[in-house]
Design a protein around this nucleic acid. Structure first.
Lengths: 352, 352
DNA sequence: CTGAAAGCGCTTACAG
DNA sequence: CTGAAAGCGCTTACAG
C-alpha cells in the first residue's frame, strides 16, 4: 500500500529528490520527468508521510487549540468555533490538536516542549494569563482568541465588545428603555484576574451610559438557570423600575426570564431581556425566543487560525480583528410600556 | 533550549541509546548511569522530540476524532464528549486531532494516508457507513462511537438504547401513564441509511410496548424549537388522549413543551414530557426544567478512547460497552391526572 | 533540470 | 549493562 518516495523514485527511474520536488511543487521539473513521476505515484498509491516530512522540514503543520478543561462552562457556540477552526486549519494543510489543559502553566510547558505543534491558539484568555508567558518564554508562535491586558506584540482576534454592547443598548434604547441593568458573570476578586469578556463588556457599557446619560447598574450572577432566577429576584426587589435587562450569560438568560415571569412580570411587556453573546441555538430554545446578540463563534475560529498561520508562514501578521455579535430579534424585547410606573404592577400594565 | 538526546548523551558521557533507555524506561540501566543522565536532562532542559520518536518508532501517538462537519447538529454534550476524549488521550500520552469531515469517503482516505495518526475514533456512525469501509480497507485501527449495522470484528462503545428507553418508559409508566408517544428525528428514507440512535431507540420502544402492552406511536420532528411545536400540534390534534411524550431530540423538546402550553395544556398536569438523551445543560434551561435521561457523553468519550488505545497497544480488545442515559428528574413529568378524559379539556383537569 | 548526500532526532535490533 | 550503527521517510542545500 503506502508507497514511499524511494519506491516511487525507483519506479520512475529518478532520484528521490526529484520526486520530492514534484510532490511539493517546489522546483522546476521537466514535463517528461514529472509525468513519469506522477504516473508512478498514481500506480503505487503514493501518499507523502507527514511525520517524515515534519521531521525533515521542522514543521509539523499541526497547531494546538488550548482551552481550559474545567473552569468556565464553555458556551453553546464552542463546538461551532472548534469545528470552524479545525476546518480552516485543514483547508490550509494543517491539523488541529485539542489540548484541554488546566490554567496552570506547567502542563502547557510540557506539551509545547514535545515539539509536536508549530503554534498554539489560546482560548479563554485571562487578562493576566500565565499561559501567555509560557508561550512567550518557549518562543512558541501563538495567537489569542480573546485578549490579555498587555497586548504588545500579540496576535489576537476577539469579540468587539464595544460595538456589541452599543448595538444591544441601542436596540433597547430605540424601544424606549431608559432603566437598564447589565447582568454579567462574577467578575471575581481582583480585577486583573478577572474574565476579559465580563470586564470589557462592563467597561463598554459604562462608556455608553456616560454618553447616553443613563445610570449604570451592573449585577452579577451564576452561570445557570438558578443564577438567572436569583438575579431576577434581585432586580424585582431592589430595582423594580427596571424595564430592560442585558444578560451576558446564555445559561442564565432563560432563568432570568422565567424568574421575572414568576414574579408576575411579563416579558417583554413589562421587562425586555436581551441575551448578549449567545448561540442562537440556546436563545431560541425558550418561549418566547430571546432577542440576542449572537456570538460570532465560527468567524472567530476561522480568523484565529488564519492569524496564527500567518505567523507561522512568517508573513506580515494580520492586524487584530474584533468582531461584533449580531442582533437576532426575538420575542423577549419590545417597546417600553406606555406610562410605565416606577414600580411595576402586573394588574396595570397597558401595552404601548 | 530544547536539548536533544545526543546533547544529553555527550553531557552525561554515555551513548544516545542509553539516554533513550532512560527516557523511555525501556531497559535496565545502572543506577549510577541513570543518575548522570537524569542530571544532564534536568540541566539541559531535555524534552523528547515527539516527531522524531514517531518516525523512528512508527507510532505517532496521535489519534483522530472523525465527525461529520455539517450534517447533524451535534448535541449539547458534544463539547463535553470531545474534551473527555482529548483528556483521556492526553493521560495516556496521546494527542487527539479533530477531523471534521463530510461523510464522503475520499476525504478520510486522504487524511489517513498521511500517516499522521495511529488510529481513528469515528463518531456519528451510520448504520451503513462508507467511512468504516475506508478504515477497514486502509487497515487503520479504529473504534466507533455508535454502531454500524454490521459489527463483526468492530470495536465500539455506544449508548444503551434498550436500558435508556426502558428507564424512560418505566418512569412514565410508574407515574401511571399509558398513552405514550415517542418523538424522534426523521428516520429518513431507506432504513439502512438512517440514523442509528433513532432506529435503535424506536426499536427498543417497540419491544417495550410489546412487553408492557401499550400502543406504539412514533412521530418524527425537526431538530429545533419549531419542530417541537409542530409535533405538539400533531399530538394535540390527532392524539389528544396522549398523557406522556418521550422526545429523542434535545433541541425540539423545549419547543414541544411550549407547543403544548400554547394549546392550553399543562405540563406535567395534563401531559408529561421526558427529554431522552440530552445534556442537562439544555434540559435545565427551560422552566420547568425538563425531566431527562441525560447523555453519558463524557463516559463515552473516555471509554471510546480507551477502547481505541487498547487496539493500538495490541492488547485484547475491550468488550463493547453500552452505556445508558441517567434519569434526571425535572418538572416536566408527573403523575397521570386522575380520571383523565380521552380528550383533554383545560377547563376540567383535576390534579391527581 | 537532476542527483548524491547529509541530516531531521529519535528507536531498536544486534553485539559485546 | 552499554554502545555502534542502521534506519524511520522525508527535505534541502550543494554540485554538476
Amino acid at each position: 500500500m503506502a508507497a514511499t518516495m524511494r519506491e516511487v523514485a525507483e519506479a520512475a527511474g529518478v532520484s528521490i529528490a526529484t520526486v520530492s520536488f514534484v510532490v511539493n511543487d517546489s522546483k522546476r521539473v521537466a514535463p517528461e520527468t514529472r509525468r513519469k513521476i506522477e504516473d508512478a505515484m498514481a500506480r503505487l498509491g503514493f501518499r507523502r508521510n507527514s511525520v517524515a516530512r515534519a521531521l525533515a522540514s521542522r514543521r509539523t503543520r499541526i497547531v494546538a487549540l488550548v482551552y481550559p478543561a474545567m473552569e468556565h462552562k464553555l458556551g453553546g457556540s464552542a463546538m461551532e468555533f472548534i469545528t470552524s477552526a479545525a476546518r480552516t486549519a485543514g483547508e490550509a494543510g494543517y491539523h488541529l490538536v485539542l489540548w484541554p489543559v488546566s490554567n496552570d502553566a506547567d502542563e502547557l510547558t510540557e506539551l509545547v516542549g514535545q515539539g509536536l505543534v508549530d503554534g498554539v491558539l489560546l482560548m479563554e484568555v485571562q487578562l493576566e494569563d500565565a499561559r501567555v508567558e509560557v508561550l512567550r518564554a518557549t518562543q512558541t508562535p501563538f495567537a489569542l482568541i480573546g485578549r490579555s491586558a498587555d497586548l504588545t506584540g500579540l496576535v489576537y482576534v476577539d469579540i468587539d465588545f464595544d460595538r456589541t454592547m452599543e448595538q444591544a443598548v441601542d436596540h433597547l434604547y430605540g424601544l424606549g428603555h431608559r432603566h437598564l441593568v447589565l447582568v454579567t458573570g462574577s467578575q471575581a476578586d481582583a480585577s486583573f484576574r478577572s474574565y476579559g469578556p465580563y470586564v470589557r463588556a462592563a467597561d463598554a457599557y459604562r462608556r455608553l451610559a456616560a454618553e447616553r446619560g443613563f445610570a449604570v447598574v451592573v449585577l452579577e450572577c451564576g452561570q445557570d438557570t438558578d443564577g438567572g432566577r436569583a438575579v431576577a429576584e434581585e432586580i424585582v426587589s431592589t430595582r423594580p423600575w427596571t424595564t430592560g435587562v442585558l444578560v451576558l450569560n446564555e445559561f442564565a438568560a432563560p432563568g432570568l426570564v422565567s424568574g421575572l415571569l414568576r414574579h408576575g412580570l411579563r416579558v417583554p411587556d413589562d421587562v425586555s431581556v436581551l441575551s448578549v453573546l449567545t448561540s442562537t441555538e440556546m436563545s431560541t430554545l425558550v418561549d418566547p425566543a430571546l432577542t440576542a446578540m449572537s456570538s460570532p463563534g465560527p468567524e472567530l475560529g476561522e480568523l484565529g487560525v488564519q492569524a496564527l498561520l500567518r505567523v507561522l508562514d512568517g508573513a506580515d501578521t494580520l492586524p487584530p480583528r474584533l468582531l461584533p455579535g449580531v442582533l437576532v430579534p426575538g420575542g423577549s424585547t419590545g417597546p417600553v410600556r406606555a406610562g410605565a410606573a416606577p414600580v411595576p404592577d402586573p394588574s396595570c400594565t397597558p401595552r404601548s
